[in-house]
Write a protein that binds this DNA or RNA. Sequence first.
DNA 1: GTTAGCACTCTCTTATGTTGAGTGCTAAAC
DNA 2: GTTTAGCACTCAACATAAGAGAGTGCTAAC
Lengths: 341, 341
Amino acid sequence: MSLEERKRMILESIIKDYVQTAEPVGSRAIVKKYDLKVSAATVRNEMADLEEMGYLEQPYTSAGRIPSQLGYRYFVDILMEKEHLSAEEIDLLRKIFMESINDWGEVVNRVGYFLAQLTNYTSFIIMPAMEVNQFKHLQIVPMEDNKALVIVVTDAGLIMHRRIDIPDTISPTELKSISQVFNKTLINRNVNEMKKSDLSYLRDKLNNRRILMDKVIETIDYLLNDTHDEKIIVSGMLNILNEPEFKDVDKLKRILSVLEEDEVLKDIIPSEVSKQVDIKIGAENRAKEIQEMSVVLTGFKGFGELGRIGVIGPIRMEYWKAAGVVESLSDMIEELIREKF
Amino acid sequence: MSLEERKRMILESIIKDYVQTAEPVGSRAIVKKYDLKVSAATVRNEMADLEEMGYLEQPYTSAGRIPSQLGYRYFVDILMEKEHLSAEEIDLLRKIFMESINDWGEVVNRVGYFLAQLTNYTSFIIMPAMEVNQFKHLQIVPMEDNKALVIVVTDAGLIMHRRIDIPDTISPTELKSISQVFNKTLINRNVNEMKKSDLSYLRDKLNNRRILMDKVIETIDYLLNDTHDEKIIVSGMLNILNEPEFKDVDKLKRILSVLEEDEVLKDIIPSEVSKQVDIKIGAENRAKEIQEMSVVLTGFKGFGELGRIGVIGPIRMEYWKAAGVVESLSDMIEELIREKF
DNA sequence: GTTAGCACTCTCTTATGTTGAGTGCTAAAC
DNA sequence: GTTTAGCACTCAACATAAGAGAGTGCTAAC
């Protein structure tokens, strides 16, 4: 597993060069560019060794070498040093995020946007499913024509709403009192507790408005269930258009249609995450749809659950930068949640 | 301007054939496919005429003919018959839209989705800017740690909210009473009226809570201003990947980056719309970014203002289908607004 | 006015060189 | 034993040429 100094140096050079140019790297090129103290012939011998060990491969006889997936793996595990955002960059971003952010979705959108911009890959953020979301406030607002709006606010700052039909015999004041009953009984309960007993209890208590109550209960259930789904935010999908490996439209189509479908993408992105940056290179991905891509991701803690944030790009990826930026922004998103919500 | 019957027939055949195959159409092919009663040579003569008149062009000497933009124009204006959705399709769609739609954004998303699916082009819906949006309800909900949530509901069913900081000396009941004052004073006022006088009047009245009032007023202003922007919903962006004219990645990149940027797209889509279906073919578009595309759109009335709905696709477009579906769905969206909101 | 016939044009495909980057191997140098 | 120069060899990439085929435009006959 462990390589001699020179082999490591050569492997690293080839990877950095190839990542930059997308062209197979020749022995002469390396010697020149990183002015090694040895001749091209020596490098050639080393490269032959590295190929035999599985770290490099040749597209065809007498072309230069390109890193194999194993080569990237070795690089990522042993050689690479993450390139984090600088303190100034972080400060700048923090300022941008802090201002005019009053809504959770907005924060996520922006972080995703910058993640894509800074790495030039496609970024994704998967918001944790909120199993134990706490109920904060309910409001029933009468609208025109037998309609009312049910607004539910959770302690995580999520606001959800849904229209319902109401009997035309009911008065606004009555609606208000119903809201109040709900609020008194349900405040600070989590969804599971709520489902168990409180809702049916409420229905009995307000027996005279049974039909309406059923509707409201159903609506709350519906709305809170909604937060059980993970939400995914994707940014910079079109960044992959810049990668030469996707100059073929069919390949592009395959990849883009995966990135476009939120549901597909959610399933495809590795789900066992920790707070470590995790890197899946090409075929290391379980899902076959992205075995020609690499994923760099990490978990972040938000509202008690673990969300996922990362980028998806070509196997020929600037892993050092991607890993650094993902880590920096993951920290930042955690911090934002802690401070603002 | 007016062509003889046979010339029209030939022009139409060429357009239909070319739209389908994306290959130049030869004289022999037409005679066979649409079995005309004349020989290929005759057709050739007619085609030469049509070319001279500007309706057809030849990619190179001795290739078949393709329609010119003028040719499409003639077709669209004179020859074409719109292919609307059938009554059954409309019924089916109406059912789909009706169920589980409780929120305006959801309706628009779905309509956009189907428009893209049914035409195989990229669909867009531009929601009207609501100049005279009416205020229905305000609610200030206390959250943890000196935070509160300001929720504004408009009569169009739009719900907007924003977090604000509040002084820690204020009590929940006090918040409620402030809400009530706002509600009493502002209900059913439109934004412009509101701005003029009421807000500052309110501030005076609640003088003891001046700072908080300023915040709330600012927030309302911010939220209502938000609806002044047109919202654009784009669906099926990737449909253009299927068109052979965009098999070149650079061209693709140019187009996709236009479609991706909401702000750019809003500006590019023709803004003078009526309830007629309008078709802009290639260079007829003002914006140079989409002069290699065609736009089929129409206006729809929603909340008193005119929104825009349509598709954007290659010049070699199935205009008859696009125009028909756009018209059908435009009617449907109007109907949905009328009935549900 | 219509049509058959035919030479002509131009793209597209396939075949054939040519070039050049880069290798692997060998033998000499360190 | 390791390193290096030298050199033949390989193979993609580019250019060029030849052939095929689709489709035209024109002419002359119907």
